[in-house]
């Protein structure tokens, strides 16, 4: 077990290096510059431009810039070009909101994915299965922003579902519980929108994995013993087929965080997705480098955690 964890940690360290390189160079190697004024603005003198480049280390060779960015990120010295505040501070004040949104979306995606997946494996090959799979592809094919707007059109006509932000303004809550409930209520619509596509993907994973498990010999043994189909399905097969659900979290997170850019923009939700969109509009290089790096790092750590948890649950994994 220790060697397994050590190996995983070593691989993770290598991945962190690759991730830092990708997130830095994809931003710096693109043409254009992050000047807060126009590239050709005649009113800006050369010395101002030189000062600006010096301040943000833009006059240094690119590997030095990489070094400054990464060191600055870990020491908290990396500052946003837009407002001069440390990038880490800007991101950490937005991070809890995004984590809450993603956690909600993930819970929705996993639980509905599990329910639908198990049901469609149960009725595999029948018309219910075919229609569920069509619906799943429908969910995948829906542009999230489009549904969000349709819902906004539909819901503004008389339903009290909050469409913006995280708090109801102008209401003083008697206690923390009421405030928290209000906050969760604000999460409802964006989290559901975010989870739509992932429900479909997860349900397909669960279905495929469960059908695969149901073909194994020990299932035939259980059936031959005369156990009820329900007992075989839920007690014997389901447990062993949950591996893709755990590893699926790895692919779920990047999709959710990426999708959050659009959803947070629509619902005026103060998370890192919207911060990223603003940073893109402002060409704020340090914030973009940090955001790409930190989100990828979060995903990486999530994967590592899932891997280790899985190795604890299922000893077979350790040997691979």
């Amino acid at each position: 077990m220790t060697t397994f964890i050590l190996r995983r940690l070593l691989i993770t360290a290598v991945l962190v290096f690759f991730i830092s390189i990708i997130s830095f160079f994809i931003i710096t190697l693109t043409p254009g510059s992050p000047y807060p004024w126009g590239e050709l603005n005649p009113k800006i003198s050369e010395s101002v431009k030189a000062n600006f480049r010096k301040q943000f280390h833009l006059d240094e060779p690119i590997w030095n810039q990489y070094w400054f960015n990464m060191r600055g990120l870990f020491t908290g010295e990396l500052r946003s070009i837009k407002d001069g505040r440390p990038v880490l501070e800007r991101i950490s004040e937005r991070l809890p909101a995004t984590l809450a949104l993603n956690l909600c979306a993930m819970t929705i995606a996993l639980s509905f994915g599990l329910l639908v997946g198990v049901y469609s494996a149960k009725v595999s090959g029948q018309w219910q299965d075919t229609s569920l799979s069509t619906v799943a592809f429908g969910f995948l094919a829906i542009p999230e922003f489009w549904v969000a707007y349709l819902l906004i059109i539909g819901l503004t006509a008389g339903f009290a579902v909050p469409l913006m932000g995280t708090v109801s303004h102008g209401i003083i809550f008697p206690n923390a519980i009421a405030a928290t409930l209000d906050w969760i209520w604000h999460l409802a619509l964006p989290a559901t929108m975010l989870a739509l596509g992932s429900i479909a993907v997860q349900s397909r994973y669960v279905r495929a994995s469960l059908l695969e498990t149901l073909r194994e010999d020990y299932i035939r043994t259980a059936q031959a013993k005369g156990l009820s189909p329900e007992k075989v399905l839920y007690h014997h097969a389901l447990r062993n087929s949950l591996r893709p659900l755990i590893t699926g979290i790895g692919s779920l997170l990047p999709a959710l965080i990426g999708g959050a850019v659009i959803i947070e923009t629509i619902f005026a939700y103060p998370g890192i997705g919207r911060l990223g969109y603003q940073a893109v509009l402002e060409r704020d290089y340090p914030t973009l480098v940090a955001l790409n790096f930190i989100t990828a790092l979060l995903v990486l750590l999530g994967n590592l955690l899932a891997d280790i948890l899985y190795a604890i649950v299922d000893p077979r994994v350790r040997l691979e």
Binding site: L15, F18, G250, I257, G258, V261, V299
Partner: peptide, 24 residues
């Protein structure tokens, strides 16, 4: 495969948005 793993960690849509926006 480690490179593949590293690329897969990135939130795809955000990475695409960043690159497209900066490239024009």
């Amino acid at each position: 495969m480690r490179v593949v793993d590293a690329v897969m960690c990135f939130p795809t849509f955000f990475l695409i948005l960043t690159a497209v926006a900066l490239l024009g």
